[in-house]
Amino acid sequence: MSPPSTTRPVANFDRRQPVAVELSGVTFGYDRTRQLLKGMSMTIPRGKVVAIMGGSGCGKTTILRLIGGQLRPQTGRVVVAGRSVPDLDREGLYALRRQVGMLFQFGALFTDLTVYENIAFPLREHTDFSEEMIRDLVMMKLNGVGLRGAAALKPSELSGGMARRVALARAIALDPLLVMYDEPFAGLDPISLGIVGQLIRKLNDALGITSVVVTHDVYESLKIVDYLYFVSDGRIVAQGTPDEVRSSGDAFVRQFIDGESDGPVPFHVAAPPLATAFAIGHAG
């Protein structure tokens, strides 16, 4: 159980825990009939960039939502910085989320606010910093992602890559201990993709944070991450460092890396035999 709440619940999260996130035996499904995660276990060490890879719809984003406490696992444990997430009350959950930054798939910038106000948003909500201090912090974060010049723009005026970088600056506005990236590379041109990838790595090392990257972009993640988990059918099917993955003989990993259409992940969705579909054999 969680210890009695103190006046500053933030203090309950130990930033120096060697393990930032730990999942063990997690099962989860959005409805009773279909299990999305079937006993998922993984360890994300502090200060590392870890990728979770898998095909679309295999529950990668769900893992992030479990870590962020937006969903509760049906069974199993989710531990972030030494605290069990499903056992947190509302206060504790919000204290946790102040320690966790998240980059959503398409940025999820607030469309009615400028770039500047988007990054200032978490600061205004959670601190009582003076306007000058907020300005300095926002400009620092914007400078970090190379967009100091775009502060006055609206999100609708940004390119996809720029929006992603602004969202990244917003995710790290409160100096979190963990940043989660949901498909940070989706829909980006090669240059923006490289920039975002390098930013993830650089920010992780410069700020001493831990990063979880959910993606299906093997090529880009192999360049920047420390460790990879491969998810299929609700389970971890393979894992390793980038070097181990590159030389892996595992059928699933090979299919993923080489981009083959058929393999352990079948090309065809389960269906009745072709003959019945085309009514062959009924002729005559």
Binding site: F104, L109, H126
Partner: peptide, 9 residues
């Protein structure tokens, strides 16, 4: 945007 807000506590 609503999810993002939730994740920002």
């Amino acid at each position: 945007q609503l999810s993002a807000m939730e994740m920002m506590a």
